[in-house]
């Protein structure tokens, strides 16, 4: 996490493998960004990335901590989960690649668009993962209109 200085910090917990609560944290993050008055175009991108990261947690992890950090120059969101992890990050970043179950696919998930959607919408994305342990996504959006 690159939260610097005296920025605003808010932590959330996401329960994995529970579809009935999916989307709550990304909606909260969006509401906070709206309240603070972040530019709508940046909020749209942050909301898309947050939703995809939250759904990955719901589908593939047991539990996660989400940390929203706001500084004067950037929004940084870290999604740190305990879960099955990603065996091959390069493959997981490819559009269309997915390890989703048939059940997830029937629900309209698992199209292999999650991580590519996050990457496309973020200004910066760092992923680290230990198979069998968990994954950490660090997503940054710059407020100076870089993207």
């Amino acid at each position: 996490m690159i939260c610097q200085g005296n920025g605003f910090i808010k932590k959330f917990n996401v329960q994995g493998r529970n579809f009935s609560h999916a989307g709550i944290v990304s909606t909260k993050i969006k509401e906070i960004l709206e309240e603070i008055g972040i530019a709508p175009a940046i909020i749209r991108r942050a909301a898309i990335a947050s939703y995809e990261a939250e759904m990955n947690i719901v589908m593939y992890a047991d539990h996660a901590e989400v940390i929203l950090c706001l500084s004067l120059s950037a929004i940084n969101i870290t999604f740190k989960d305990k879960g099955q992890g990603i065996n091959n990050i390069e493959l997981a970043m490819q559009e269309g690649y997915s390890t989703a179950t048939d059940e997830m696919r029937e629900m309209g998930f698992g199209a292999g668009l999650g991580l590519p959607n996050i990457k496309r919408n973020a200004d910066k994305l760092d992923i680290s993962s230990s198979p069998g342990k968990g994954t950490t996504l660090d997503v940054t959006f710059y407020l100076n209109g870089k993207k």
Partner: peptide, 15 residues
Amino acid sequence: TLQIHLNIVAVAKLK
């Protein structure tokens, strides 16, 4: 859509 499960509501709200 033809999707009928709970998550469609979260998507509609977020967007």
